[in-house]
Nucleic acid binder design. Structure first.
Lengths: 404, 404
DNA sequence: GATTTGTTCGTCCACGGAACGAATTAAATC
DNA sequence: GATTTAATTCGTTCCGTGGACGAACAAATC
């Protein structure tokens, strides 16, 4: 027997697993109803899954007419993944299990020495996170690492990550895989944040969205049809290089993009200085504006105009249902509200603009989402073209008490 | 037997059809080798396909050791589709058959009365194209119509199509389906052009590309991972609304986008007038520049700078492997070369920029591509998630003598 | 004779449906 | 209130069928 004839079992198995992940605990009869497969097919598959340790009996139904049913549940720690959010100042790691719970979040300041030190730090944090849940690290099958910068898939290097010295010259993916002993996926952190919001955050209700992260710099995560857009060199969503805000043809705009120069935190501070003559960091400018400082208010207005233009740009190109603002600066309601007011003045179509729901956990949750989807795919769909096991919906996750 | 158990046959059938479409004429033994299915499975399926009239014997192999093989081929006119490119000034229609040949291109000036008159005209042209190939119109299964504007899938109206009066208030899709008696798909013409270039044009070697059409106005077709990006309201690629070029917050920018106002043909002519005081249309400006007119040259420089910024914008957001310039103005080498020179000055990553290979036939070929893919899907994949029959590659099509 | 094509035959996987026993609740009767 | 009966649901066994594969073999050609 070759590929094709076993494929129906594969499909059946996937749809059973998906149903259990979504609806556990659930009886075999219910699975049969949901999947449309016959009861004895379900029984066969359930027997196999139980033998292999993926699921187990957890109880029985009661209280309604008819025979009680045995209910099955995922064995959550049969396989887990590690999710990591590497920032310029701190690293966070978490473990996510097969039932899609995100567990044991640990955190540390980023090792300033960069290079292999950070690789080792990540590996240590992952082990620590696993240990904290009482899990043997061998249960970890995959690590997803969100990084600020553009991972280059061919070489494993991470380009444009100024806060992590040395990562543009070592094969980070290989080093991490080696250090952890499992496959690792390195992905841009803003992309992951978008994936996170799409799973259980502000974008859970739409498959076409863009997340704009505004902090020290500006970045974007683009999703089309529920899939992340990575681009040919993992550089999609580099909104900092949108050619307006400052003169895009000035040579410096090749290093720090035209928009980033005027919309990044430095640019905002500079604008305030130009208007008022005073030096202040972004937080101080927000405070000053709240206290009625004219120039600070003007600075925020100007900033929001640029942000609105950035939103208009992505809306013009990918026409998303929603644009999510995130990052320490992007989530400020002063900005979000200004964008609400300004966007209709420069873009004719309605675009829903919202602040991030997951905040600083976005990238970590996104890493979990990517990792779990990838794990499911590796374990069960096994190369079936187009077949995927959807993650449980935001509604289900809320029900299970996973707060954002 | 229900869905699941028949699925392996479905998959086998799809992969046999794909192989025949790609490699016809081909023997059953070769199909078996290519698909990995066993010889007798292929024989069974071939028998069924022949009975249903999809394929037929066309010859026998000879000249090599061993028994001669019977070769099979698609019955090309067993089912065909109609492809239509509706422009503001003319309508073109073509028939494309199952073997993916695009036949019998007919053309007419667009009926200026708009509305149902244009619907009727399209239907007539489609019938005419079929008749020209000696095909009974009942062979046509599907029509794909490229239109300038944004089709609204919910209502079937076509928004923002100023040259076709009335189409923003009638259900065009339904009217066409009714008039033709077959399902019809209405799609933005620039999107289709992108799809066409991706199939057998300048973008045949990459799955992430953006086509920018520069003519009277400016539009974009975005492909990510080999799929068209339509956006939540079919308005992806509305590059005219990129917020630079003119002041995006001027109220008029809500009607004609900021970039379109300065990069559309009117904007170019206006720029020339401002610089030189002379009135000229775009073609005359190109001619004047060729004759050494300083202001005309300056106008083109300015235009190319804006175009380069538009390219930079899409490159920053979706990071395509290639940007294809098309449209009567966009393909001019004077512009393409200037963009080649200017883009590296305002965008740090390499992006391949090329002129369209299909020219004015792009949308028509794209419509054929969309239609054929959809027809294949309807006939054989029949709702199998993720399964697709790929169109024959550009190389195969070239071999068959389909010139761009 | 070597090689390739295409058919026939037997086998095996996998799904579905019917029938049935088991387990439980709801209703009816004593 | 206790007991019997009906209804319902769960899960298994058994059998039929679709469909793929491999082996063997006939046919056709160099």
């Amino acid at each position: 027997m070759n590929d094709v004839s076993r494929i129906s079992r594969r499909i059946a198995l996937c749809s059973v697993m998906e149903t259990i992940v979504h609806c556990a605990p659930i009886s075999r009869a219910s699975i049969a109803k949901q999947t449309g497969l016959s009861k004895q097919t379900i029984s066969e598959i359930a027997r196999q899954l139980e033998e292999e340790g993926w699921i187990r009996e957890t109880g029985r139904t009661s209280g309604h007419v008819g025979r009680t049913a045995v209910t099955y549940d995922i064995v959550p720690d049969r396989a887990v993944i590690a999710a990591v959010d590497l920032g310029g100042t701190k690293v966070r790691a978490a473990i996510a299990d097969l039932s899609c719970q995100v567990l044991s979040d640990v955190e540390e300041p980023t090792d300033k020495r960069g290079g292999h030190h950070v690789v080792a730090q990540i590996a240590r944090l992952c082990r620590q996170a696993a240990a904290q849940e009482g899990l043997d690290f061998s249960k970890v099958r995959l690590a997803v690492i969100g990084v600020p910068g553009a991972p280059e898939s061919a070489t494993g290097r991470v380009l444009m990550a100024p806060n992590i010295p040395g990562w543009d010259s070592i094969d980070v993916t290989a080093a991490l895989s080696q250090e952890l002993g499992v496959e690792s996926i390195v992905e841009n952190d803003v992309n992951l944040a978008a994936r996170g919001e799409h799973w259980i955050g502000a974008g859970a209700d739409c498959d076409d969205l863009v997340l704009i992260a505004l902090g020290t710099g500006i970045g974007g995560g683009v999703m089309v049809g529920g899939e992340l857009v990575r681009g040919v060199s993992n550089a999609a969503g580099e909104l900092g290089f949108l050619p307006f805000g400052s003169d895009p043809f000035e040579p410096q705009s090749l290093h720090m993009g035209a928009l980033e120069r005027s919309l990044g935190s430095e640019g905002i501070a500079e604008r305030y200085k130009e208007l008022s003559g005073r030096t202040a960091d972004v937080k101080a400018i927000f405070d000053a504006a709240a206290d009625g400082d004219k120039e600070a208010t003007k600075t925020l207005d100007e900033t929001a105009r640029l942000l609105a233009r950035a939103v208009a740009s992505v809306a013009a190109i990918t026409n998303p249902a929603k644009v999510i603002l995130s990052g320490s600066i992007g989530v400020r309601s002063e900005l979000v509200e200004r964008v609400h007011a300004l966007l209709p003045l420069c873009f004719p179509r309605p675009v829903s603009v919202e602040a991030s729901a997951l905040g600083s956990k976005g990238a970590l949750i996104g890493a979990a989402a990517v990792g779990l989807a990838s794990l499911h795919a590796a374990l069960w769909t096994a190369g079936m073209q187009g077949a995927t096991i959807a993650l449980p919906s935001a509604a289900i996750m809320r029900e299970r008490g996973v707060a954002a």
